[in-house]
Amino acid sequence: MNTDDLIRGLTADLTVSRTSLERLFCYALLPGLFVALILFAAILGPRPDFVAMMGDARFMFKFVVTLSLGACSALLVWRLARPGAPTQMRAAALGLVVLVLVAGVAVELATVPRSLWAARLVGQNSVVCLLSIPLFALPILVFAILALRRGAPERPVLAGSVAGLFAGAIGAAIYAAHCPDDSPLFVACWYGLAIAGVAAVGGIAGRLSLRW
């Protein structure tokens, strides 16, 4: 088959697509999120004082950090799925979220006496945290990777890792509703570890399945 034949064949295959890539990604998130929330409801459920804590700065800070991390990762990974698209601004936004977390840690260190630092850092529930976040993140990651296969990431490992960051962040936001540890010290350490683990799994998944 010469190249002119191939072009004829490709032209005959031209179809108009109605759904944009971004919308497709959004649809793909729903089943993963659904499974994650079911797991959450079945295994942990929100903490008993969830509603009462809604005004608490530390409790809310967990959601601010995890949800903005999730949003920025999603925006970045959408760009990474498009060859040649600029990513610097969105990568910078992701860096900004990390700065917010660092600021939260700094405020905590400044306002809490040194003698309490260790207790805040270790918390009560670090093992549950380390297990739950990846558990809730996993279904989200699976569907995110499936959706990314429709894209064409130039750097599959990076795209997979950022998808993992996204899944980990959303998993962490879900877990935060149960988590009794509200200190930014705990969040930075244990949430950070759990999310990094999911990002690493995402990187491996990207390497295995996002080549095109």
Partner: peptide, 19 residues
């Protein structure tokens, strides 16, 4: 479909060709 119509076409093509 991975070319964003609001972005220039050549960088996209270049990235696909390079890959």
């Amino acid at each position: 479909q991975t070319w964003d119509e609001t972005l220039p076409f050549t960088p996209w093509l270049r990235a696909v060709a390079r890959n």
